[in-house]
């Protein structure tokens, strides 16, 4: 499983179709992967595991999200005003 993930990350080209977000508007896809990346990282780091496989989420949200949004959310996390649970 872990090896599978590593190959997937290595061969990443762009975000694949995600059946949870079938609509043309992909805002929630972007948002979910942003949240998942930071949740994954937090979880694995806290249990002393290698957070490398979390990188998948980052690749996806970097493909999906406008950079402006990512910047805004990063700033919000830094200021403690991010409206979401990580």
């Amino acid at each position: 499983m872990d090896e599978d993930m590593k190959t997937k990350i290595k061969n990443y080209r762009t975000a694949p179709f995600d059946a949870r977000f079938p609509n043309q508007n992909q805002t929630r896809n972007c948002r979910q992967n942003y949240l998942d990346f930071y949740r994954c990282e937090k979880k694995l780091k806290s249990s002393g595991q290698d957070p490398y496989i979390c990188k998948w989420y980052k690749l996806v949200f970097t493909s999906m999200c406008p950079t402006e949004w990512v910047k805004r959310w990063d700033d919000q996390r830094e200021n403690g005003t991010f409206p979401g649970k990580i």
Binding site: T27, R28, R31, P83, G84, K85
Partner: peptide, 12 residues
């Protein structure tokens, strides 16, 4: 919306 933390009532 995301801006509300995707919850109702909005975050905060």
């Amino acid at each position: 919306l995301c801006e509300l933390g995707e919850s109702w009532p909005p975050t905060g």
